[in-house]
Amino acid sequence: MTQVNSPTPRVALLTYSTKPRGGVVHTLDLAEAMAALGVDVTVWSLARGGDAGFFRDVDPAVTLRLVPFADRDGESITERIVRSIDTLREAFEPDAYDIVHAQDCISANAVGTCIRTIHHLDQFTTPVLVECHAKAVVTPYARICVSRAVAQEVEEGWGLSPTVIPNGVAYQRFADAASDDPGAVEARRRWSDRLGDYVLAVGGIEPRKGSIDLLDAYALLRKRHPELTLVFAGGETLFDYRDYRAEFDRRRAELDVEPIVLGNVPDDDLPSLVAACRVFAFPSVKEGFGLAAMEALAAGRPVVVRELPILREVFADTVTYASTVPELADALEAALTPDCGRAEAGRALASSLTWEDAARRHLEFYARHPMPRDAPTAEDGPVVGSR
């Protein structure tokens, strides 16, 4: 691979999916911000299940390279991840770029030597996935984290020192959805007519998002505020959470509550969905930044989050924190009463985090960390999952 010798290198950003997950949102927004600065940037991704494109339109200034990845019946998660790595590795063209920047475990294992953004650290028990996760931290020649808390986890676990570059936020998109513009008012009204007054969680039903805790908290809250609905949006993921979803459904029946599960919401409709909620709930047990909650702040919504060091770092006093289910229910109830000062502080925080700034900081990082000469490829060392 060639070295960076200009402020506008040829950059490849790699992600594992075309679905609306946090790391994918990050990749596309960062790519578009880089392209706006004149960078030749290409986004590589697996196109799962026959996807012809990403979950949203992408600025044509960004080149897209989507690698077909067909579903296979009966395939385990480990087999699927190993096949994902092999498929992306076979298709990727490293010599076309000055900077190769992987955004996840799959892409980092596929391309070998690269820059890696570690959005958060996962915990696996399957040996192949444990190896995959560790290699994706150790093998890259330089690392970025989106928060100091995640960078500290990397330092404590591996003795490495990533650079912290926070996420940007598409502030105006969500602020406009909360405005008095007639179109924005009408879009919010449509959600309210459909859902009533609602507590919203974005990210689907899965263990990391604390969905069952939120369900339990809502059951307590509903006794005091029977007019409120609980709404879940999103949820596309690589992993199999059927057991967790079965437990969620069992608990739902036991509590006799009926949350509304929207699944994936069209990207153009998401800002108005967020802007129309009474409270935005974010009880995740593991996060790297909390982009969905930051978008809710941009829309001026009160936000309740899990008491986590990472979220304290990112959100400071702009949100309400809760550790237990009763605390979560109490915090959701308290958030129903408008707090104009906190809402204004939340908007100010969200507006201060721009993708342009994130892109500039990435370019400065690239200039300080050019690709090593004669860098090994993924095929030069042991390959995770090789037979």
Rank of each mutant, 00 (worst) to 15 (best):
T8P: 00
V100D: 01
A12T: 11
D98A: 10
S161I: 00
D40S: 12
V261D: 04
D71V: 11
R306E: 08
Q103R: 05
M1F: 07
A334V: 09
M1K: 05
V39F: 12
P372L: 10
I144L: 09
Y244C: 07
L30H: 07
R373I: 07
D40F: 10
S76G: 02
L214D: 14
A151M: 03
D86Q: 15
P326N: 06
R65E: 15
L46K: 13
S192P: 00
A70D: 15
V128T: 14
D71H: 15
D29P: 02
T377H: 12
V325R: 14
I85M: 09
S107N: 10
L353E: 05
V274I: 15
P20A: 04
V11M: 11
P338E: 05
V265A: 01
V154N: 09
A201Y: 06
A47M: 06
G300Q: 04
A110M: 14
A331S: 14
V11P: 13
D243V: 03
L221K: 09
P271K: 05
C105H: 10
A91R: 12
R80I: 01
D197E: 11
E90T: 07
V199C: 00
S84C: 03
K223M: 10
P382W: 13
V279C: 04
L332N: 05
A33T: 08
L121G: 00
Y218V: 01
V130F: 04
V82F: 09
E313C: 09
E75M: 13
A108N: 05
D181V: 02
P266A: 12
R222D: 04
G38P: 07
M294H: 04
R189D: 11
F239E: 03
V265S: 01
Y241N: 14
M1I: 11
Y16H: 13
A177R: 08
A91W: 06
T113I: 14
M34H: 14
R21L: 11
D330A: 03
T318F: 08
P309C: 01
P382M: 06
A36R: 10
